[in-house]
């Protein structure tokens, strides 16, 4: 790029601004990884809990949720490594990161006070309310509509989990993460392959 001060028109100025802003937009790879990782982990754990509870004599099916603790470390290590490799961090990425860190803090607080016990059955739908909040804000921040629709699905399944009978309510969590994390997560990943950035 040269520095031609005498020929710069207002249209050219706006073109430069627009081009530079587009080049620094958020790289969505990291967002897709976390959605897919947590989508699969929570779907598998909630289905495991459901099947252990319904079809075995195992007394503590909620123990499976203890695996979310190493999951948090995996997510944090991945995020730290990706962050240290990046040349710059856009404001969008910073907001996106803080939304999810706030979600992890809220969730960790809940686990610390409740512990991993039979209460997991009851708090599951309320945890979905937190998750939907984070997914919805992420969708707004990166302007990705499937995430916004995913958040709405999570809210719907959260209400379903609260009011449905005990025999089918536990299925609200896997249904919510499949529609609210995995589907938009894969769409985000495909969008990344096509465009690289959002």
């Amino acid at each position: 790029m040269e520095n031609r001060e005498t020929t710069l028109s207002s249209e050219k100025s706006l073109e430069i601004i627009s081009e530079m802003i587009n080049r620094t937009k958020m790289n969505i790879r990291h967002g897709a990884f976390h959605l897919l990782f947590w989508g699969w982990l929570v779907a598998l754990l909630s289905l495991s809990e459901y099947f252990l509870d319904r079809f075995t004599t195992f007394e503590h099916p909620w123990w499976v949720w203890g695996l979310t603790i190493p999951g948090i470390f995996v997510s944090m290590i991945y995020g730290y490594r990706q962050g240290s490799r990046q040349a710059v961090q856009s404001y969008t990425e910073r907001i996106y990161k803080w939304i999810w860190l706030a979600f992890i803090v809220a969730l960790s607080t809940l686990f610390v006070f409740l512990g991993v016990n039979e209460m997991m059955h009851k708090v599951g739908p309320f945890i979905l309310l937190f998750a939907a909040f984070a997914v919805f804000l992420s969708g707004i921040v990166i302007k990705f509509k499937p995430l916004i629709f995913g958040a709405i699905c999570i809210w719907v399944f959260s209400v379903f989990g609260i009011f449905a009978g005990p025999s089918i309510a536990p299925l609200a969590v896997p249904a919510a993460v499949i529609t609210g994390y995995l589907v938009p997560g894969y769409m985000l990943k495909n969008s990344e392959t096509k465009n690289g950035k959002v």
């Binding site: 530079m20 620094t24 937009k25």
Partner: peptide
């Protein structure tokens, strides 16, 4: 109002 300086500032407006 210069091509390169405007590009530099446009980049810095969007990143930390």
């Amino acid at each position: 109002h210069s091509q390169l300086r405007l590009a530099v500032v446009s980049i810095l407006m969007n990143v930390d």
